[in-house]
Simulated assay, not measured.
Amino acid sequence: MDLTVSPIEPAVVRALLGTDDAGHAPRFSVDHDGGSPLRCCLTLARPGERVALVGYAPVRRWAADPGPYDELGPVFVHAEPCAGPDGDGWPEAHRGVARVLRAYDGRGHIVGGRMVPAEGDPERVAGELLAEDGVVVVHVRAVVFGCFQFSVR
Rank of each mutant, 00 (worst) to 15 (best):
P68I: 14
D88V: 08
D86A: 15
P68K: 14
C82F: 06
H94R: 12
A93M: 04
G84M: 07
H94F: 15
E71Y: 05
P81S: 14
V77F: 01
V75R: 00
C82S: 09
D86T: 15
F76W: 13
A79H: 03
D88E: 11
A83S: 14
V75M: 04
V77L: 02
G96Q: 11
D88S: 12
G73S: 03
P68D: 14
L72W: 05
E92M: 12
D88C: 07
E92F: 09
V75K: 00
Y69S: 08
E71A: 00
R95H: 14
A93S: 07
G96D: 10
V77I: 09
P81W: 12
F76K: 04
P85G: 07
R99Y: 10
P81L: 13
Y69E: 09
Y69H: 12
A93N: 06
C82T: 09
W90P: 03
P91N: 06
A98E: 11
V77S: 03
P85F: 05
E92D: 15
E92A: 15
R99H: 14
P91Q: 02
H94Y: 15
R95Y: 07
P68S: 15
P85I: 03
A98K: 09
V97K: 14
W90H: 07
R99V: 14
V77E: 02
W90C: 04
G96L: 09
P74W: 01
G89I: 04
G73E: 01
V75D: 01
L72G: 02
H78N: 10
P74L: 08
D70K: 11
L72T: 12
V75A: 08
A79S: 10
E80F: 14
G73W: 03
L72S: 03
A83Y: 05
P91R: 00
G73I: 03
H78L: 11
W90F: 05
P91H: 01
D70Y: 09
E92P: 06
F76T: 01
E71C: 06
G87Y: 07
A98L: 11
H78T: 11
C82R: 08
A98C: 11
L72V: 13
G89T: 01
P74A: 12
A93I: 03
E80W: 12
G73A: 04
V77A: 06
H94P: 02
C82W: 07
D88I: 00
H94I: 02
E92V: 12
P74V: 08
A79R: 02
E92H: 13
D70I: 10
R95W: 10
A93Q: 02
A98Y: 09
V75Q: 00
P91T: 01
V97N: 11
E80R: 15
G96H: 10
D88P: 01
H78A: 09
R99W: 12
A93F: 00
H94M: 13
V77W: 00
L72D: 07
D70R: 13
P85E: 06
F76V: 03
G89S: 02
P68W: 11
E71K: 06
W90Q: 01
E92W: 10
V97C: 13
E92T: 13
G84L: 09
C82E: 07
A83F: 06
G87T: 00
G73D: 05
V77D: 00
P91K: 03
R99S: 12
D70A: 15
E92K: 13
V75P: 03
W90R: 01
V97Q: 14
W90T: 06
P81Y: 13
A79G: 07
E80C: 12
R99T: 11
A79C: 05
L72C: 12
V75T: 04
P91Y: 02
H94S: 13
E92C: 08
